[in-house]
Amino acid sequence: MNRFWILIRRTHTYLALLLFPWLVMYGVTAIGYNHHGAFGTANDLYNFSGPNWTAEETWPASFDIPAQGPIPKDVAAAMLRMGGIAAEAYGGYRLGANLVVAYVPSFWTTERLAYDLRTRELTRYRRAFVAQTTLTAMHARAGYQHESVINDAWAVAVDATMISILLWVATGLAMWWQQRRLRPAGGIALAAGMASFAWFVFGL
């Protein structure tokens, strides 16, 4: 085996070992999407009156909320400060006509600060642990939109995993083609996969 093929094999192996936890995580957490309810319900994520939510504290408050459009980050930051939550990554969104919510993405805890435009009160809510939320939070966690080194680092790991998957496919195909005896059977497996995929694309 010449040096080129050793390089291909080692790249395939070492990338897999380095990114092993991310690969397994993406596989396992996908169960949470494909089997709704298997790990608890996430349906009450936007319903603070649901049984999983607890209102911990309420303060009189006044925030300068634009009449429409996205919630500015400095408003979400001010809400978090008043609520006593320190975070590098956060954001805000509207929930119905009367609530503005500040959130902090987290794998393990779900806290929200909801500002009621009618009563001018800010309430901190905490949600009980729901495994479904943790699984989907890990699977969907992106990055780069927060000014935070650790969030950027996670986003780099996401990109590295996806690029590695493409490299595993490419190097896997190359290594298969090197094994002449396996070309017919492998060709059938590859063609069957491609035909099935194409059938789904047009049939779904």
């Binding site: 992106a142 990109d159 996806m162 998957i165 496919v169 195909l173 059977a185 492998g186 996969g193 995929f197």
Partner: peptide, 23 residues
Amino acid sequence: HLFIGLFLAPWITMYAVSTLVMH
């Protein structure tokens, strides 16, 4: 390892490329 990889290559490629596009 090899044959599962060959059959599912279109799916795993789609998941990787689409993630990069969404990201």
